[in-house]
Amino acid sequence: MEKQQTPFGFHKLIFILLILLSVSMSALGRDILSDIIELKIESHIASGGNFDSVTVELPNLTGKTLAKVIEYCKKHEESSEKTGELSEKWDGEFIGGVEVGMLMDLFLAGYELKIKGLNDLAASRIGGMMLGKTPEEIRVIFDIKEDPLCKKSKSPKEGERFARDNPWAFQ
């Protein structure tokens, strides 16, 4: 089932539902899912679509990412019930412990599932990894490719030339 090349469809939804159950979903996780389905149906109808053939597309999420998303949601649900405020420490440890690939996954998941707290947390972590770094260091961390065309020529790299022409930005 995992090897299918089909776009997301209903079977994918069931797949995700199964994952949700397997990580002992709380009410919050179900809410998120139903919210997003509702949202997709709404936008489908708003754009003149026929209700008979709604395809609910769910964001690109691996089981591993989803488990992380749910861990985040559960923690926040618990602590908002208990104290009304969240421990920044927990957030920091949660996001600090993931590698770059997962960080990007969580950032996108937060965005797609409209979990603002998670989206912001991941964004600020990604930002934090750039903080105080040179362009070259940032390229290494995130595996950012310089423009391929410039690489082939013998002239200095485009980025270096740009930095030389705009000293104000790099001092």
Binding site: P135, D147, N166
Partner: peptide, 8 residues
């Protein structure tokens, strides 16, 4: 602003 040197 430094990210402007990453790529085009």
């Amino acid at each position: 602003v430094i990210t402007s040197a990453l790529s085009t």
